[in-house]
């Protein structure tokens, strides 16, 4: 089953970097107590909602939700703290 994540971007949605390896923070939107947990990860994203295994929602810098779901492939969750 596809999981849903989101991320915030500081640039315009049109300038989103696709299919390249990115390191950044995403949030896990799985319902329940842990919803909105932040994850530091390496991932690839695409504006094609079906290209990668999970769904990624995109928000702009002041929280505006972009109404075009994308897809994401998480390559590695990076542990920030020991």
């Amino acid at each position: 089953m596809r999981k849903v994540f989101d991320t915030f971007i500081s640039k315009n949605f049109e300038e989103l970097t696709e299919d390249e390896e990115i390191t950044g923070i995403i949030r896990d939107l799985t319902p329940g107590r842990m919803k909105y947990k932040g994850i530091y990860a390496r991932f690839r994203i695409s504006k094609d909602p079906d290209k990668y295994p999970d769904t990624l929602l995109v928000r702009l810098g002041r929280g505006q939700l972009v109404d075009k779901p994308c897809s994401i492939q998480i390559l590695e969750e990076i542990k920030i703290f020991p």
């Binding site: 949030r27 919803k35 909105y36 947990k37 002041r62 929280g63 505006q64």
Partner: peptide, 16 residues
């Protein structure tokens, strides 16, 4: 911290 009922206060906030 997720064992505490921190709310998502506004839609679009960066977190709880």
């Amino acid at each position: 911290l997720f064992d505490l009922p921190a709310p998502m206060v506004h839609d679009g906030d960066g977190g709880r």
